[in-house]
Amino acid sequence: MKNFKAIALALVVVLATTSVSAQTKKVDVTKSTINWTGKKVTGQHEGTVNLKDGSLVYKGKNVVGGAFTVDMNSMIVTDLKEGQGKEKLEGHLKADDFFGTDKFATATLVFKKIVTKSPNLYTVTADLTIKNITKPVIFDLATTANTATTNLKIDRTKYDIKYGSGSFFDNLGDKAINDNFDLTVALKF
């Protein structure tokens, strides 16, 4: 019986000393990028939007959490030059027809569930809040020691952004804008 107690105690000590505490890695917002692409019948537009802050939470080498805040007022169009309607499009994207950045200056993403697909590759279910509307999104996240990358497809109509949507308006013809927009995210820590 003494041997059993000694082994059990040794096992408890080993488990207690090898447990890994969570580590939070803050995103370097000056080196991280979010590129967006919005498509319409007659083409597409591209641009960027900046992170305000964010972090991933690790336990050992595994991602176990994350939260990010996006500065919606930083949104710019990169495929047009000054004088080609760049300022007009940026203003329209920030207006109430789209993201309403005067009222909703930030968007947030909070990880809710993370499943490891393979080492350094995760399927993340997160709550995305745009215009004070929160909906779940699912995406894959690839990580290295100092980076994380993902591609997301977001249905803007779930966030009450219906302008030019063929799902809500008839007879738009070549003025229709796709409901989905794409985000390509590269985070650096």
Rank of each mutant, 00 (worst) to 15 (best):
P119D: 08
K113A: 14
T150Q: 06
D127Y: 04
K135V: 12
T143N: 03
T125M: 08
A142S: 12
K153I: 14
I130A: 03
T149A: 10
A145T: 14
I138A: 12
D155M: 11
D140H: 02
D155P: 10
V137P: 06
K153T: 15
V137W: 04
L128T: 04
I138F: 12
T116I: 15
N120I: 10
L121G: 11
R156E: 02
D140G: 08
K158F: 14
A145V: 13
N151A: 15
T157F: 09
N146Q: 11
V115A: 15
I130M: 04
D155W: 09
N132C: 01
K135R: 11
T116N: 15
K112R: 13
T144F: 07
I138G: 09
N151R: 15
D127L: 07
D140A: 07
A126D: 01
T147F: 00
V137M: 09
P136Y: 03
K131I: 03
V137G: 01
K113I: 12
N151V: 14
K135Q: 13
I138K: 12
R156Q: 04
T157E: 09
T143K: 03
L141N: 04
D140F: 05
T149E: 10
A148G: 00
L121H: 15
A145P: 05
T129I: 08
K112H: 11
N146H: 06
T129K: 09
I114S: 00
T143E: 02
I138C: 11
T147Q: 00
T143G: 02
L152S: 05
T147E: 01
T125R: 14
T147R: 06
K117G: 01
K158V: 10
D140T: 06
V137E: 12
K153C: 11
T123P: 09
V124D: 02
N151W: 11
A148I: 06
T125S: 11
L121N: 15
I133M: 08
T147I: 04
T134Q: 04
N151L: 14
A126P: 01
T123H: 12
K112Q: 12
K135S: 11
T125Y: 10
K112E: 07
N146L: 11
Y122T: 02
A148E: 03
K153A: 13
Y122M: 06
D140R: 02
P119L: 09
L121K: 15
L121W: 14
F139K: 05
A142L: 06
A126E: 00
T123C: 12
V124A: 02
P119V: 10
T147G: 02
V137T: 10
K112T: 11
T134G: 03
K117Y: 10
K131T: 03
T123V: 14
T149P: 08
I130Y: 03
A145D: 15
T147L: 01
N132L: 01
K117D: 08
N132R: 09
T123F: 11
K117H: 10
N132M: 05
K153W: 10
T143V: 05
T149K: 13
I154N: 03
T143L: 00
